[in-house]
Design a binder for these strands. Structure first.
Lengths: 224, 224
DNA sequence: TCAAGGGAATTGGTCAGACCGGTTGACGGG
DNA sequence: CCCGTCAACCGGTCTGACCAATTCCCTTGA
């Protein structure tokens, strides 16, 4: 039954009854309106959340995700079906992000470069305060790959970064995240911005490859 | 909480504790074993079902899906103008196959090189008879990426090659598929085999990049 | 008058226990 | 030996309750 309800709610989202960014009715009210119990309604909501259509905030409410992709994605892909190894995920991200950096240098507009610069500025502030800029790293890299104007790259890199925040990566993250690496990352990303401004695709790719080479050694080389 | 439980169960599936096709313990037993209530356990199972890892049969039990691979990672080219275009697909294949070639040179075993050589031999025979070796091209490239020993690469490249056989690519295929390009392809792929035998990753990547550069111009440059 | 504090109402998160209908498989009758 | 029956088991659903987080309004004090 939860599948029927999920489809029903998804239809309401797609036809605009529940607009992106808006709050859905409360679980109790929604359950009564649809004519099912709250547990069943919850199961439908969890299916929609797993599918990436909605997000919930405890004590507040359930919201339609604002960044809905135009193509329906319901039956598939939460990153959950990626293969097991962290090394494999890293290699995939390396291949995609290096290629995306080159394309982004050729294609990024001023607005996209501004978004990247803002992220870099926030990173500076975080590092200055001694805080972990990991989440901002993700934002930067996702924005960079978006600037490549390739939906496939964007989608895959997003999923790979999301997977990187899971439990599987926890011990590896500790190996590379420290004050020194944060500062080094700021320099690298600043150079990347210069390459983008100069529309120098080769330089952008080279910088990204050097970055992944350096990080990869810290992650996976036993000697370090 | 259901997300934590879902990850936990997923880990058990991935490490083989719950093998594909096998039945999971009942909801009541599983909930007690994990230490949560049955509704919460059910929410985790629904997340896994939505993600395509398991399936439930009423009155019988919950089973690990036997076919974990064919679940697509991203929506591709179901319609004509839906989803990423041919250029985006080409760029993705380029990024992935070039990286895979380098890894394959480092990792391919004798058996995998033999499979590639057999495919190349069949290609020779086809071209000698004047037949289109396109399908054999696909076999070769898929085998090559498999030799990189990275499931993510394998799945994505498979899917992109499958999309390449669709209607969306039809006019583009005509631009590059002719007797001359077939013969040139044989030379390139023979060189690739040498790089693999020499375990020369850089050479393999360079050859693949040159290949994609050449083909990409024929596909997408208006002047040719 | 306005800002800060506090508490009540609302919301999602979790739980226990119960009942229903479908599936399976063993047991017993033909 | 085959087949039908039935009990045990399993997922599906519901009720009702309590908890924790968040919000927001109203009170209080400056």
């Amino acid at each position: 039954m939860y599948e029927q309800i999920a489809e029903q709610i998804e239809a309401l989202i797609r036809d605009g009854t529940f607009a992106p960014g808006k709050r859905l009715p409360g679980e109790r009210e929604l359950a009564e309106r649809v004519g099912i119990s709250r547990p069943s309604l919850r199961e439908a909501l969890i299916a929609l959340e797993t599918a990436g259509l909605i997000e919930t905030r405890v004590g507040d409410g359930t919201y339609v995700r604002a960044d809905l992709s135009p193509t329906p994605v319901f039956p598939l892909a939460t990153g959950r079906d990626l293969g097991p190894g962290t090394l494999e995920q890293f290699e995939a991200r390396r291949a995609l992000e290096c290629a995306a950096a080159e394309l982004a240098a050729q294609r990024a507009g001023a607005a996209e470069r501004a978004v990247l610069q803002e992220s870099l500025d926030r990173m500076h502030a975080l590092v200055a305060r001694g805080e972990n800029p990991a989440e901002e790293h993700r934002v930067f890299h996702v924005a960079l790959v978006d600037a490549a104007h390739n939906q496939i790259f964007s989608r895959l890199v997003r999923e790979l970064w999301r997977a990187r925040q899971g439990a599987m990566w926890e011990t590896l993250r500790l190996k590379v995240e420290n004050a020194e690496s944060w500062r080094a990352g700021l320099v690298t990303r600043a150079q990347l911005m210069e390459a983008l401004a100069a529309r120098d695709g080769a330089a952008a790719r080279a910088l990204m490859e050097a970055h992944f080479h350096r990080v990869g050694r810290k992650y996976f080389d036993p000697g370090e």
